[in-house]
Design a protein around this nucleic acid. Structure first.
Lengths: 196, 196
DNA sequence: GGTTGACCATGACGATCGTCATAGCGACCC
DNA sequence: GGGTCGCTATGACGATCGTCATGGTCAACC
């Protein structure tokens, strides 16, 4: 039987969400069909609209939320027990692993959903904004604790998220880690001077 | 009749390429069908595979190249007759205009194609890498002329392209210019200290 | 132990996807 | 003026898309 924990659904439901997030990273939102999610997750076809009455949009919404929560927890853990540079390392290091492990074929699922969202699915835009916002808030808190002013910390957090996400895209195009490494080097220099 | 200029195709062919680049910015690659391109460009349906024997992939390839050339020319013009900060303004200012004019619904077509490309279309990855590479080269040249060292100029150019592209995505999600403004403020500060 | 309800198997719906074949148009060349 | 060729109109192909209805299974609860 399935043990239901508050906030978490069935096994197959969660597998679908995780697979959707995984597949979005490589093929994007429109490029990923329900059949792909079923095949990748091994979840049953018949219960799609039982778990996701809102259809594909709801699945994508949950996938974005899942990715947002997952990465935010990683950033938070690295920020709580490290210096300012570890905030950058935690965020960039995760995407470096995604790039290498996928052979530069995968990127950020939140980015994928954002750049494809039309007007008839505003929930997706909101979910993406939530994820990006939480990442920035967590990073900004870490930078403040390291000694940066609140205003500067907020601006730097936005720069970190923007540049690392952008560098991840450039890495996929160039099929190498050079852009991400260059960005991280500059970011570390900036954060170092900002916390003094 | 159609006046054929070297490197440029028919009117309807070029309209299709431009429309594809335009539509990719809002709906992405997989989210944009040939029928959308036909409707938006007013081009005839029957000549799709006359102008693009390679099908949708070739159309996207040309769209990425078109966007790459177009923006590179803008950056080059701004870099040639300005200081180091104008390089940032030229690049970021273009995307600011795209965001505002589209109501935060459009982004970068090169990004859209990159994050959706699978293995069966490596031409698209290469075309994207070319566009990103040219933008970085042009910006780096401008930074070098302003006084930055070649190595630092290359790293900064990568940071500029990455962070502005990333900020554009964040702006679409948050539906405001705050991320881009924050990034531009930090970038100007960095480039100012780098050219001294 | 009968009933409820969460969950899944199966198959199909209409729409749209990228692709292509065929026929025909009109301008140009010899 | 007959023929060639760039370009377009039209319609269809099979595949796949998201969506949903129906019927069934099995554990849980009164």
């Amino acid at each position: 039987m399935n043990v239901i924990i508050a906030g978490m659904g069935t096994d197959s439901r969660e597998r679908m969400v995780r697979s959707a997030a995984y597949l979005f990273r490589e093929r994007g939102y429109s490029g990923t069909g329900f059949r792909d999610v079923i095949a990748h997750s091994g979840a049953p076809r018949g219960s799609i609209y039982h778990h996701f009455p809102g259809g594909k949009v709801q699945l994508a919404e949950d996938a974005v939320r899942y990715a947002g929560d997952f990465l935010d927890a990683g950033i938070r853990a690295a920020v709580e027990g490290g210096d300012a540079a570890s905030a950058v390392d935690a965020f960039a290091g995760w995407w470096r692993g995604v790039l290498v492990k996928s052979g530069f074929r995968a990127g950020c699922p939140v980015v994928a959903v954002t750049v494809e969202s039309h007007d008839d699915a505003p929930q997706l835009v909101k979910a993406s904004a939530d994820a990006f916002g939480r990442w920035q808030d967590t990073l900004a808190t870490g930078l403040e604790n390291a000694g940066a002013s609140p205003e500067r910390a907020a601006r730097l957090a936005t720069l970190i998220v923007s540049s690392v996400e952008g560098a991840t895209i450039l890495c996929r195009a160039e099929r190498c880690l050079r852009p991400l490494d260059a960005v991280v080097a500059e970011l570390k220099e900036i954060t170092r001077t900002a916390v003094d």
